[in-house]
């Protein structure tokens, strides 16, 4: 077992009066891929957004409990959320590139960090596009509008953009759900490469995908964490009946 990167203790989340997450406890290991699965509305995406405090942006959300990253409670009131989000990157379900050039999209984050040096920015662009395995396709199109790329390319560009701020953790919210099988395969391959250097948490609808890419899998149902274990165990020999029903396709 690798070292724990993220430790969540007794976390509950409410939308107004409605409780969306119930007493979640989970330890997420460093430099591994952890998958969250479960039927839609089970809270897996909401929980993912807990880990970089994206839920703070929504009105009427109340959160109890603690989330520790490297031993620091990220829900501490005086903590710098902006710094947190720089270290915990996020890739969203649908590509959300800005309507700017490929280059401008990648350097958006580094520029926020005050990097102005053109040479340094160029280096970051090349490095992160290489990391996201899209350099060859994009190197001649750096000054084109990012939205002119194909859907799969756009999503890999989103990953590159997230990498450009040098996070340690990358949260992925169903990153391949809108893509065709070939693009999906490319993203999955990319996830394999990235876990050498990054802690990755991925929410997915697709159980085969979870089985293919993740080391650990957590099964959520109705706002509760039902079961959390090594992926092979979850898919071959789950401890709970609900998990078994779900992974064998009996509901969801």
């Amino acid at each position: 077992m690798k070292e724990t990167k993220i430790a969540v203790k007794d976390l509950s989340l409410y939308y107004g009066d409605k409780q969306a997450l119930k007493d979640i406890n989970i330890d997420i290991p460093e430099k591994r891929v952890t998958a969250f699965i479960g039927p839609s509305g089970c809270g897996k995406s909401t929980f993912l957004r807990v880990l970089n405090r994206m839920n703070d942006l929504i009105d009427h959300v109340k959160i109890d409990g603690e989330v520790y990253i490297d031993g620091v409670n990220i829900y501490d009131k005086s903590l710098d959320i902006v710094n947190l989000r720089k270290n915990v990157g996020m890739v969203f379900q649908k590509s959300n590139l800005f309507p700017k050039t490929v280059y401008e999209n990648i350097v958006y984050g580094p520029r926020l960090n005050g990097i102005r040096d053109k040479k340094l920015l160029d280096e970051i662009v090349e490095k992160t596009l290489n990391q996201a395995a899209i350099w060859d396709e994009a190197k001649d199109r750096l000054n084109e509008n990012a939205l002119s790329l194909s859907g799969g390319q756009q999503q890999r560009l989103c990953i590159a953009r997230a990498l450009a701020v040098e996070p340690e953790i990358i949260l992925m919210d169903e990153p391949a759900s809108a893509l065709d099988p070939i693009s999906t395969a490319k993203i999955e391959e990319l996830i394999h490469e990235l876990k050498l250097n990054y802690t990755i948490v991925i929410v997915t609808h697709n159980m085969q995908q979870a089985a293919r890419v993740s080391d650990q899998t957590a099964f959520f149902y109705l706002g509760e964490l039902i079961e959390y274990d090594r992926t092979t165990k979850i898919f071959t020999n789950p401890a709970k009946k609900q998990t078994e029903d779900y992974v064998t396709g009996r509901f969801g």
Partner: peptide, 14 residues
Amino acid sequence: PKSHRDASYGLGAT
């Protein structure tokens, strides 16, 4: 789109 705001916040923008 809200997703553009999310992307920016996710990259650590204020």
